[in-house]
Amino acid sequence: MSADLALRLDLADLYAAYGACLDGGRLDDWPSFFTEDCRYRLVPRENHDRGLPLSTMDLRSRGALLDRVYGVKSTLFHAPYYQRHIIGPARVTGRDGDAIHSEANYLVIRTKRDAPSEVFNTGRYIDRVVRTAEGLRFTEKICVFDSELIPNSIIYPI
C-alpha cells in the first residue's frame, strides 16, 4: 500500500473517531485527540475571512481543552443537547516538516430534548496533524463556521 493511501486511511479513522467521541458525549476523551501544545479555535467565517483575531473559542494548550471540559461539565448551566457530526472526506492540502495540513467539511446537527433536530453549525476544519506514538493527533484545529448567527449558545466543542 502506498504511503499516501495509508495516510488517507489514517486521516479517515482520525476524523471518524473524533466525531464519534463528541457525538457519544465522551467529553473527557476529547483532549486526547490533541498534542500537548495544541491550539483549538472555533471561528465565525467573517472573522476568519477578514483576518480578525476574535474566536468563539480559543484554546491554546491541551490544558486549556481540559479546562473547557471542566467548564462544560461543572460550571456552565445549559439545556442539554445531542450533537451529530457529519464530517466530509479529509483533503490533504500541504505539509510542513512532520505536520500534515488537512481540511474537511463538517455539519453538526443539534437535537435538544423535546425539540426536532436542527442544523446547528456547519463549516470546515482547517487542521495540522502530526504522527505520534499513539497515532495521528491534531496539533492545530481551526473550525471556521458559516453559521455565524449562533442559535443562542454553543456549549460543547465542535
Partner: peptide, 17 residues
C-alpha cells in the same frame, strides 16, 4: 474573550437563562 460571547464560560449561560 473565552469568558464571553455565545460559547463563553460566563456569557453562554446568560443566553440560556
Amino acid at each position: 474573550a473565552n469568558l464571553f460571547g455565545p460559547a463563553g464560560f460566563v456569557s453562554a449561560d446568560d443566553g440560556e437563562v
